[in-house]
Amino acid sequence: MDTILECHGLTKFYGSGVCALNQINLNVGRGRIVGLLGPNGSGKSTFMKLAYGLLTPSLGDLSIAGFPVGPDTKEVVSYLPERTYLNDWMKVRDLIAFFRDFYTNFNEAKAYDMLSRLNINPNDRLKTMSKGTKEKVQLILVMSREAQLYLLDEPIGGVDPAARDYILNTILGNYNENATIIISTHLITDIEQVLEDVIFISRGEIIMVSSVDQIREEKGMSVDALFREVFRC
């Protein structure tokens, strides 16, 4: 299997001594759609932020496409954080120009196409948009990059169910077959249909890595049902 993301002994402590990730070893192959699933506070966002270099690992190492995380990997990874990271005074049109200027792999036509399908006016400012619309804009910007690895942290949390389907189809329909998508979420039913692999994470440790087919065949249940069983409170 050709690997896109690889980590060994990846550990992250936060200042107050909290261990957010503990000795994570993981290999993710190219061309997969992977669900990073776990309850709140299990370390999903921490993992995403480490993979993009927004956090510094306490121990262990992490490489993407063979390079340690750093300026070299930023060109090949497209990251959607769980928060609004765009300033609110720019118009959508300006943001697209911003992405086009900085990322050589940004596909402007694709971005405008997705905007029009979701009825978002490129001349609107983010200030005037609802939370869900802002999330859509961010997702469009991130998915319009022709990257090798997409890290989507809670991509559909604030979006209405009708748009969710469209967005999931967009994710599936608009990316290169060799690229890998890692989606972190706890909205499993909505996303289960598109997933190929799942990683279950709990309290900073990986408790299961499996393909969705394997779960269905061996355990005879859906990912959602398995998740509820594994993480029963």
Binding site: Y52, G53, L54, P71, K74, E75, Y79, P81, R83, T84, Y85, L86, N87, F102, Y103
Partner: peptide
């Protein structure tokens, strides 16, 4: 604000050197 708060998520995801 632009580097170390929420907007930092964008600035540090750009393929530029620190």
């Amino acid at each position: 604000k632009n580097l170390l708060r929420d907007e930092g998520y964008l600035m540090f995801t750009l393929p530029v050197r620190t």
